[in-house]
Design a protein around this nucleic acid. Structure first.
Length: 277
DNA sequence: CAAGATTCCTGGTGGC
DNA sequence: TGCCACCAGGAATCTT
């Protein structure tokens, strides 16, 4: 389940390896994953085009050419591998992009067992207009006053703080794992109503969201050497988890057993003593 | 309009 | 050991 740090790690690896490549061809092995794959549009935008830029917005990976953008989302189990093999090497390989970089052939394999991922495309230069991006919140690591932003966005929201920070309309890129971890580090109970939290606490929370994401990115970036083979399997769980998946195990701070609950269809973990409701 | 439920999917796990 | 029910999760879409 790639979260923002894993996606960032993959983007950096792609930038390093294929940033000036030309797309020679695309092979799709099924018409849809989560959504229908827009095959014609994808080929129009990519094939015989040079890659201008590879970057990330939210958990989407964007590949830019002169004609438009290719968009990848890795969902829960998505993976991108750069390989010398032109044919699938693993089950659930849904697409292979043939690339040529410095007269070398490289194949980008898009693999996703659970098919929660997405391959999409957008024509033209205004990628921000794509429906994936037209109503989402800021990047947590780029917004200077994230704490202030979270506080302002939550004045009329009685929903639990965990739901609010995981809502992409508030801020992007905070998935279940890092939401639970950032709340633990901030000593905020995940079910506390968002509008009952002080600006000061939001500033602490913002700081912890950024630290946990940055730590994971830093570790992810150092945990792989060969981009071609290990891409996408990197950085994941690089950060020591205090609460996530630790139900019943002692809190590292106070030894109280970590509690687990379900809310809005999502599991959550917290220390009942360190994180007061 | 906000909050929460539902939906998609398969591999791994826990119970019997 | 074998089988099966259940759960994990991002994000769009629905219902209340």
């Amino acid at each position: 389940m790639p979260e923002l740090p894993e996606v960032e790690t993959i983007v950096r690896a792609l930038q390093k390896t294929i940033s000036n490549a030309t797309v020679e061809g695309i092979k799709l092995f099924r018409p849809n994953i989560r959504d229908k794959i827009p095959e014609t549009l994808l080929k129009t935008i990519l094939v015989d085009q040079k890659i201008n830029r590879i970057f990330r917005r939210s958990k989407y990976i964007l590949i830019e050419t002169n004609k438009g953008y290719c968009l990848f989302h890795l969902g829960m189990t998505g993976n991108i591998i750069l390989s010398e093999h032109a044919d699938p090497q693993k089950p659930h390989t849904h697409a292979i992009f043939a690339l040529s970089s410095n007269s070398q052939n490289i194949y980008l394999h898009f693999i996703d067992p659970r098919r929660f991922g997405n391959i999409s495309a957008h024509k033209g230069s205004d990628w921000q207009q794509h429906r994936f991006f037209d109503s989402i919140g800021p990047e947590p690591l780029e917004l200077e006053r994230l704490g202030q932003h979270l506080w302002e966005s939550s004045r009329k929201r009685s929903a639990p703080i965990k739901s609010v920070i995981m809502d992409a309309k508030t801020v992007v890129g905070v998935g279940n794992i890092y939401a639970c971890e950032a709340l633990f580090r901030s000593q905020i109970h995940p079910l506390l109503s968002a509008n009952k939290i002080s600006l000061k606490s939001y500033e602490k929370l913002a700081q912890e969201i950024c630290s946990v994401l940055n730590e994971a990115i830093t570790q992810g970036g150092t945990s792989f050497r060969d981009f071609k083979n290990t891409l996408g399997e990197t950085g994941y769980f690089a950060v020591k988890l205090n609460v996530y998946g630790r139900k019943g195990e002692p809190c590292y701070v106070c030894k109280t057993p970590i509690a687990s609950d379900t809310h809005a269809g999502r599991s959550l973990w917290y220390c009942p003593k360190c994180q007061k409701l």
